[in-house]
């Protein structure tokens, strides 16, 4: 009985220590990535290549998701507002929710699933096949050559993808509200224009997606670099990227929203 209790306390202690040391490693790793960013300036080609695979190749899923999210938002807003005769405000609801919340958050969630998991798998596989060790032995710093360009590409891509998501979402909303439900086009745009603030809404949304990009890319590259180099370890690391990434996005979204939009 006592032994059982002691074992549990010991396991709790081990678990806590392991989690803390992992957090410490992640921070040390982030510092190494920052140090690696300066060396990368000499090789812009590495960044461009990663911007393509991290950003451009995520574009299709972002555009399709954005379009349908915008369309659904317009439909829901219309059904809710039409009872009050306020259907002209559909655009305000669509645009504000896209810019403030849905754009950054859904983009980040999709990014974690599509690009984040790919980053973890790619770096983890390079570790498992000794490519990272091989680079080290060739006197090439793998954090600088492999990790830093991928991390920076993630941070740069996220706000751009979120902006595209929101823009396409607004177009989707327009299609449903104006073309399908027959609202007035002028009212749609003028209502949106009168209610959307440049910094308050657009700016804060961009800041959110920049923070999400930073955190998701950090988690993705760290999980890949720190994974156990076996097929099982790699699978677990990829799962962790998506799970931790998604949770971090949702928790940070609450924190940022509370800070940004408090009156």
């Amino acid at each position: 009985m006592v032994n059982n209790l002691l074992d549990r306390i010991q396991a709790l202690g081990h678990g806590t220590l392991a989690a803390l040391s992992r957090l410490g490693r992640a921070n040390v790793f982030l510092m190494a990535v920052f140090a690696g960013l300066s060396g990368m300036l000499m090789r812009p080609g590495l960044l461009v290549k990663q911007l393509f695979s991290v950003g451009v190749q995520t574009l299709i899923i972002i555009v399709v998701a954005g379009l349908f999210v915008g369309m659904v938002m317009a439909l829901q807003a219309y059904y809710a507002l039409v009872d009050f005769g306020a259907e002209d405000s559909v655009s305000v609801m669509v645009v504000l929710s896209l810019l403030r919340e849905l754009g950054p958050v859904i983009t980040a969630l999709l990014f974690a699933g599509r690009a984040g998991s790919a980053l973890t798998a790619e770096i983890g596989l390079m570790k498992a096949t000794e490519q990272l060790s091989g680079m080290e032995m060739m006197a090439v710093n793998p954090v600088e050559r492999v990790v830093a360009p991928r991390f920076l590409a993630g941070v740069i891509s996220m706000p751009l993808l979120a902006a595209i998501f929101s823009a396409v979402g607004v177009m989707g909303g327009y299609l449903v509200a104006v073309q399908m439900l027959g609202l007035d086009s002028g009212a749609f745009w003028s209502q949106a224009q009168s209610k959307v603030e440049l910094f308050e809404d657009l700016g804060n949304g961009m800041i959110k997606s920049l923070v999400f990009g930073f955190v998701v890319s950090w988690i993705a590259v760290f999980e890949g670099y720190d994974c156990i180099p076996t097929s099982e370890g790699l699978g677990q690391a990829t799962t962790r990227t998506v799970v931790y990434g998604s949770l971090a996005i949702l928790i940070l979204d609450f924190v940022l929203t509370a800070l940004m939009f408090s009156k």
Binding site: Q131, S133, E136, M137, M138
Partner: peptide
């Protein structure tokens, strides 16, 4: 600097894929 004067052949070859 020292590693530039060392060569290492990994079991898998460790070629950049």
């Amino acid at each position: 600097e020292l590693r530039k004067r060392m060569g290492m052949l990994f079991q898998s070859g460790a070629l950049l894929t």
